[in-house]
Nucleic acid binder design. Structure first.
Length: 497
RNA sequence: CGGGGUGUGGCGCAGUUGGCUAGCGCGCUGCGUUUGGGACGCAGAGGUCCCCGGUUCGAGUCCGGGCACCCCGACCA
């Protein structure tokens, strides 16, 4: 018996991905390649960079589209700034250059000549956009200035993983300028809300909105805010950030305006970003042993149709039904694909599309032709339980209904998973450590000091993720988990990506 | 940047103490049979064994040097 079990295991591992439950990291590395989100990183000619394949890029386009609509709806406009930034620009904001110096890629030559001033390949664009803003803004009538840019950025990383940390990645960076602190702060919070709304309602990932500790703050910001998500292994992932930059960049780049009293004032600026890391979040929040599970609202293919037949007569009948349903799906605006491959069996196709995370599968075979039915199989409910047979006449209604159900089920599953793994702990450092070592989240009173944070990092390789905006005990104080001193805010701690 | 490891058809690997024609599985191409949960048969194609140098009658194998990549630890959307 034992030998049979081992052989079965070997067969499975040859055919499919390493089960997520067995080795989360290996599962992730394999699934991004096998689901064709990226080219095999080991064969990508540039170290630490990724080739995003069409299926992965379509997923990114869906993310882009969902975010871009939200940005436009709140009055932001897109623009584009150079990928090269004069080195001197970065040096104008002391904390900023210090934060980014270790991971800069620098261009020293162009057109065969050494450049007078080296260019940095943008790691982020606060400086070059700040420089433009200083020229564009003169009057309070020019404010607020609400810009966004979709771009690639480069940060030289020592250890990289597809989507989670790569030397080059795609993102959007919003950059805004305002007349007052309050307006900038409101903007930073508004964008955080937009990110949270996107994560929850499009990506089906529950997130916690919070503020970063000073140690985890963006280099050059007054305050940094984050949406934190829990991955399938319990680790935390920052899925988006928003910064109130205060007047730090305004002063460094002379972004100033004349107010209504004809007095010169510095602007208050913000920046905010979501990157291709969001793809990593979607993979790790929803995936299972069979592969990806994509939320219907973002899935490049929402429905895959598998025709099944034994001979040419059946093929003709089956494909006629497939065409009919296909036209209906198209009319309903549903993204679908018909798997017409002749060289692989239906069973292979089931597994193949499950690995790619397609939310819903429709099987049409001779029996369905005969009965006027169609088989619908949900990706989020494995096996027979997820399969239903519906009348062809109502298939579109059923598809719409089921896609909606899958979307909300993914969110519900992720929420229940997370809520079972976050724990409030007061004054018990031992238990605090055990929670984090056990791969779960601890919510505890925290002073936020550099010393306290360093101690936690030293002890248990974890840092604070955020002070949640929604505090569980507002107005109260409690003992800092590290120092014991009374403090008025609680923070989440967890191991993180 | 410190420690460990690996470079052999597209992918995963075998090739032990040198030996002749470099092999296996998967994938790929063609034909046929199959097709409701990862099909099968037959016939094919595909290799400067990471690079450079050395030892030898003979090097994928031994020696020297180089390069690349992967994994594990300190910094990061």
């Amino acid at each position: 018996m034992a030998n049979v079990a081992i052989e079965e295991h070997l067969i499975v591992s040859e055919l499919a991905v390493t089960p997520r439950s067995q080795d989360f990291s290996a599962w992730y590395n394999e699934i991004v390649v096998k689901a064709e989100l990226v080219d095999n990183p080991e064969r990508t000619p540039v170290r630490g960079c990724m080739i995003i394949k069409p299926y992965g890029y379509e997923l990114w386009e869906a993310v882009k589209s969902g975010l871009d609509q939200r940005f436009k709806a709140t009055g932001h406009v897109n623009a584009y700034f150079p990928v090269f930034i004069p080195m001197s620009f970065l040096q104008k904001e002391a904390e900023h250059v210090e934060g980014f110096a270790p991971e800069l890629a620098v261009v020293t030559h162009g057109g065969g000549k050494e450049l007078e001033e080296p260019y940095v390949i943008r790691p982020t664009s606060e400086t070059i956009i700040g420089d433009a803003m200083s020229r564009w803004i003169q009057s309070y009538r020019d404010l607020p200035l609400l810009l966004n840019q979709w771009a690639n950025v480069v940060r030289w990383e020592k250890r990289t993983r597809p989507f989670l940390r790569t030397s080059e990645f795609l993102w959007q960076e919003g950059h805004t300028a305002h007349a007052t602190y309050d307006e900038a702060q409101a903007e930073a919070m508004q964008m955080l809300d937009i990110y949270a709304d996107f994560a929850i309602n499009e990506a089906a990932i529950p997130v916690i909105k919070g503020q970063k500790s000073n140690q985890e703050r963006f280099a050059g910001a007054l305050a940094s805010y984050t949406i934190e998500a829990m991955m399938g292994d319990g680790k935390a992932l920052q899925a988006g950030t928003s910064h109130n930059l205060g007047q730090n960049f305004a002063k460094a780049f002379d972004i100033s305006y004349t107010d209504i009293n004809n007095e010169l004032q510095y602007c208050w600026t913000t920046s905010w970003g979501v990157s291709t890391r969001m793809i990593g979040a979607i993979i790790m929040a929803h995936g299972d042993d069979q592969g990806l599970r994509l939320p219907p609202r973002l899935a490049p293919i929402q429905v895959v149709m598998i025709p099944i037949y034994k001979n040419d007569d059946q093929k003709a009948e089956v494909l006629a039904v497939v065409e009919t349903i296909g036209r209906q799906l198209q009319g309903a605006g549903i993204r679908f694909h018909v798997d017409r491959r002749e060289s692989v069996s239906p069973g292979f196709k089931y597994n193949d599309w499950e690995m790619r995370g397609v939310p819903l599968r429709i099987e049409i075979g001779p029996k369905d032709v005969e009965k006027g039915s169609a088989a619908l199989a949900r990706r989020d409910i494995p096996g027979r339980d997820g399969k239903q047979f519906v009348d062809q006449a109502v298939v579109i209604d059923k598809v719409n209904e089921t896609l909606t159900a899958i979307q909300s089920n993914l969110l519900q599953q992720a929420t229940e998973f997370r809520d079972a793994r976050r724990h409030e702990v007061v004054g018990d450092y031992q238990r605090f450590s055990e929670i984090i070592r056990g791969g779960e989240w601890a919510l505890t009173w925290f002073s936020g000091s550099a010393e306290a944070e360093a101690r936690v990092k030293e002890d248990i390789q974890a840092v604070s993720r955020c002070f949640p905006l929604e505090q569980p005990h507002p107005g109260e104080t409690g003992p800092c988990i590290v120092t014991g001193e009374p403090t008025d805010r609680m923070a989440y701690f967890a191991r993180a990506y």
